[in-house]
């Protein structure tokens, strides 16, 4: 059981690092949205990993993760809706072009 926790933590760290790298380097909004989804999954996986630590499996962590998945879905929807409007407006999906509100 302890092994499984370790493996999950390592996997979640890798996912986290990947998503952060993607958020920094990618310019396409769709790719940013995917990176954000991976970020959320990394956090969820962390929750699941630590719920396994004791003698019993903690159900509260699972409940939170399910809630988190739902919220993550909503966030994704919002980003994708945003992406559609950004494309309509600017005719591009490059995030560097979205600086109309900058000084």
């Amino acid at each position: 059981m302890f092994e499984a926790t370790h493996l999950m933590l390592i996997a979640s760290s890798i996912l986290y690092a990947v998503s952060i790298c993607a958020l920094i380097t990618r310019r396409n909004i769709i790719q940013v949205a995917i990176a954000l989804e991976i970020l959320i999954d990394a956090a969820n996986m962390n929750f699941i990993a630590f719920s396994n630590m004791g003698l019993l499996i903690d159900p509260v962590a699972h409940a939170i993760v399910i809630t988190s998945i739902v919220i993550g879905g909503c966030v994704e929807t919002a980003i994708l809706a945003l992406a559609v409007y950004v494309y309509k407006h600017y005719r591009t999906l490059d995030v560097r072009e979205l600086h109309r509100l900058r000084w």
């Binding site: 952060i20 958020l23 920094i24 380097t25 990618r26 310019r27 940013v32 995030v95 560097r96 979205l98 600086h99 509100l101 900058r102 000084w103």
Partner: peptide, 17 residues
Amino acid sequence: FRKTHTGVLSNNMLAIV
């Protein structure tokens, strides 16, 4: 401090990290 607000998502993420 205004100049530091580039408005580019990647720069903001870099600062967060």
